[in-house]
Simulated assay, not measured.
Amino acid sequence: MKNLLYILVLGLFIYSCSSTKNRDFNKKEITANANDTVRIANDSLEYEIIVIEPGFNLFINSIAKPRGYHSQSYLENKNIFLVQEYNSRVNQPFNYNPNLYIQAINYDNFVDYGYEVNYMLYNYFVFFSREYNQRFSVPTRI
């Protein structure tokens, strides 16, 4: 009787391990990434922001402060410091994780990108700092 119980448990274990063969994990990963792509472009100024980050779309639609909460000048001032700090970390791959800080952000302080781009960029930094537990040294008062 005891051996029968062991054989039954072993059979269930083998069955549970073999049931994962038919899953297509790559397909799920691709659809998740496709749904989390956010693109903002303005052809007249020739700029665009493309955010490909799992969970960012959910963050921007549910957790982030609504559009109009901050003024454009507030967002621009924050983005100046955040982009400088981020680009500084991109240039220091031995001090900061190069898998997180992959590419520098080209943000010109003298270009008016408009409210939407500054809003999305600022909220990307908020999302990035929460998601990856990163702290940016940005002045609290500007």
Rank of each mutant, 00 (worst) to 15 (best):
L4R: 11
V111S: 04
R135A: 10
N57C: 00
L5W: 09
L10Y: 08
L4K: 13
L12F: 15
E53M: 01
N91V: 03
N118W: 04
L8F: 15
N118H: 10
Y96E: 05
N57K: 05
F94C: 05
S71I: 01
Q103C: 02
Y96T: 02
F25A: 11
N97T: 10
I7G: 06
R141N: 13
N77C: 08
Y96K: 01
I102F: 08
Q92W: 00
F110S: 13
Y47N: 13
N87T: 11
T37M: 12
F59P: 00
R89E: 09
I63K: 00
T31Y: 14
V126L: 07
E131L: 06
T31W: 12
F136T: 10
N87C: 06
M1Y: 09
D112E: 13
Y113G: 09
D36H: 01
F110G: 12
Y113T: 10
Q84W: 08
Y86M: 05
K2Y: 14
H70E: 07
C17N: 14
L75W: 01
N123D: 03
F59N: 00
E48N: 10
F127A: 01
L82F: 12
Y132L: 00
R39T: 15
N35W: 03
Q92L: 13
S71P: 00
Y132R: 04
I80P: 05
Y6E: 12
I52E: 14
